[in-house]
Simulated assay, not measured.
Amino acid sequence: MKKLEPAIQFHNPGNTLSIQYGDRFKKAFEDRRKAYLNEFSELLFSTFDKPVLAKLEFSFKDKIIYNERGLNSLLYAFLMPFIHREKFSKAKYYFALQVPASLYPFWCSLFFRGKRVCVLWNYDWIEMSEKIGKSKNYILFVKLWTWLTLKLINYYVVTNETDKKKILASKPNAKIALFPTAVDTEIFKPLHRQRKPNSFIFVGRLTYQKNLENLISAVSEIKGAELHIVGDGEDREKLEIFSQTLKTNVIFHGRKKTDEIIELLNTHSFFILPSHFEGVSNALVEAMACGIPVIASDIYTNREIIKHGENGWLCGRDKESIKESMLYALAHTDEAKKCADNALQMIQENFSVKKYFQRLAEFISKK
């Protein structure tokens, strides 16, 4: 397939350069660029943040259009088509990574003819804002932004059937492609290590969304079980105190580099993600790619990936349901092995980075 013309990807203001994932963030960024370049002749990343990218020592800084002057993010977003006129005129495709970045590429497309704008949409921004307790004014703003996105943009890439139906309900003529989220299966893969018995691992941010108090409570009632929590976040100190109060066997690893996370996913018995809500979880598909049996909460995005009892298990979000699922997994090692093998095959066949961007290129280039 002939490579498509240059593209620009826009990231969320204030979130693009979050260094909370450190090496893992850098690796994901590099993987995305390489995968894009297999299909597009050139890719530029556009960011509204100050040039802290230099701190991550990216090897492709020349491919990033960032806010060198440290302007206000909103002001910079509106000035981008003028500040970087040559680069924006050269690109044929503008991608928005998530709805919070969607209107910026549309704005830029108004100044250059023949640009195609596409939104990569993998969670419901309105629903998520409501669940994490954002203010009424913030939610009103999110609803307006989402309405404008649906009004002005025609191309969408979603990662689950539920979000596709939501978009079509609001915009029946929308052009939508449903692709699973992507994982680099050359990096996240089974290492065939000896797995530690009775051990569970969670990878992600330590926030209310992840439902870790119920997980820790469940582990405290399972004799001999051990929980490893990888990641950091605003709730870490509270969770550490909570686990000490319950005298639970929990190990907090903090942030880890990509290769360390892969090693941990290949060392423990089960991966568990009991979140109250999620987009399509990168941590979940990365765990499946490493061949570890998975347990995840029974929410619509997880149901798009996990077929209960076939390639993993779904559980309720309360303590008792989580505990029952963990006990079941511990007692059914043969089923766990079968689920892990099925999950690995599914990820390799459907979730690889290469296949994702091949599909994206085919979709965005259609007339």
Rank of each mutant, 00 (worst) to 15 (best):
I126V: 10
I83S: 15
T258L: 01
E42F: 06
N249D: 06
K189T: 11
E30I: 15
H268Y: 10
L284I: 01
I19T: 15
D62M: 02
E263M: 00
L97F: 09
L273G: 07
T245S: 07
S297F: 02
Y300M: 06
K307W: 02
E30V: 15
H228Q: 01
A329H: 07
E86V: 11
A101P: 04
K61T: 14
R255F: 06
H276P: 06
I19C: 11
R303G: 03
I262W: 03
A7C: 13
R193V: 02
I305F: 05
M1C: 12
S170M: 12
L212D: 02
Y94P: 05
T267N: 04
E237Q: 08
S41E: 12
M80N: 09
D49L: 05
I132K: 15
L152R: 08
E5I: 00
T258C: 04
T159D: 11
L4T: 04
F88L: 15
K189L: 05
S352R: 06
G231C: 00
I83K: 14
F111D: 08
V52E: 14
K165T: 12
K175C: 07
T248P: 04
F277R: 01
N137G: 14
E127C: 08
S135W: 10
E310Q: 08
S41M: 05
E237M: 08
S89V: 04
N302L: 01
K61S: 15
I187R: 00
A336H: 09
S199C: 08
R303H: 07
T258W: 00
K87W: 11
L56K: 14
E260P: 09
